[in-house]
Simulated assay, not measured.
Amino acid sequence: MTETKEIRKSTTDPDCGFMSRENKQEMFCYLDHRTTDMKFNIITDAYVTPGNVHDSVPYLSRLDRQIERFGFKVEAVALDSGYLTNPICKGLHDRSIFGVIAHRRFQPTKGLFPKWKFTYDKEQDIYVCPNGQKLGYRTTTRDGYREYKSDPKRCATCPLLNQCTRSKNKQKVVTRHVWEEHKEKVRINRLSPSGKVLYKYRKEKVERSFADSKELHGLRYCRLRGLHNASEQVLLTAACQNMKKIATHLAKLG
């Protein structure tokens, strides 16, 4: 049976997308995916997508475009929690880039142990539950997740069963992506001294750039309809901001 998905479409601007995120206003809009440098806060890339495209989708391709077009030697990047995905963490590792990504809070099922309560043993390739039982590897899904399952016979007599699983067969299943180790490396980067300093500058750089665009350059609203027109508005706004940044820097040099 083929599953169908309902997609909302604007009758006045079919190119835009409906954005629905937690703690965000639901609306039809476009998204500006922007990159700035750390030293002068120059906008090095501005890419527009419909509002229903996740931030992480175009990131690696836009990063590669900047490296190829401008010859940038990217050493480190600081991103918000929306970019904390396995493909991006793996992509940063493959490009030898020090990645710092904000922590994303997951909401576990109420009354059950969160995943971090299960300890992963890399040498044995197993998970250990809070009661000490080993969850062995069973299979890998098509989406790249390795499944680790407990022994239902031992789980049946476990005093923590009600806090561990609610499955009918009384078996706990923990999943781990094949690229999970790269995400763990990014978490270590975030907690390192250099990672904390790098992420601190993010709100002073790219977040400030977005704020200036909306408050000082009228980018809070699209002036024309269509993806092409929205892209033109974003690029012209970015050009104006860059000219101001460059002029300010040259003025400081005398």
Rank of each mutant, 00 (worst) to 15 (best):
S167A: 15
M19A: 13
D94Y: 05
Q133L: 12
H182Q: 06
D32H: 03
G254L: 07
T109N: 08
D32I: 08
P14G: 05
R154N: 08
N86T: 13
H93E: 04
S209Q: 02
T157V: 15
K115H: 08
P14D: 09
T11S: 14
P130A: 05
D45Y: 02
F106S: 14
Q171H: 06
N162H: 07
E180D: 12
Q163E: 14
T35V: 07
H182S: 08
L60T: 08
C222L: 12
T44D: 03
L253V: 11
D13Q: 08
K117Y: 05
C89D: 07
Y148F: 13
R8I: 01
F113Y: 15
I7Y: 10
L216M: 09
G132C: 04
E204M: 13
E123G: 04
K183Q: 14
M38F: 12
S213P: 00
S231K: 05
M1L: 12
T237Y: 00
T11Q: 12
L250T: 12
D64K: 15
R166P: 00
D80L: 08
D32K: 04
E75K: 11
A211P: 03
Y199H: 12
T119Q: 10
Y120I: 07
V178G: 00
K149W: 10
N52Y: 10
G132E: 14
N23F: 03
S231N: 10
A211N: 05
I97R: 08
G136D: 04
T36M: 01
K205P: 00
F106P: 00
Q124C: 10
I188F: 12
S213F: 03
S150D: 04
R225K: 15
D45W: 00
Y199A: 06
G111Y: 01
S213Y: 09
G91F: 09
S81W: 03
L224M: 13
T85L: 07
K39G: 03
G218A: 01
R95T: 01
C222I: 11
N23G: 07
E123Q: 13
T248I: 06
G82N: 10
P50T: 01
Y47H: 09
T140K: 10
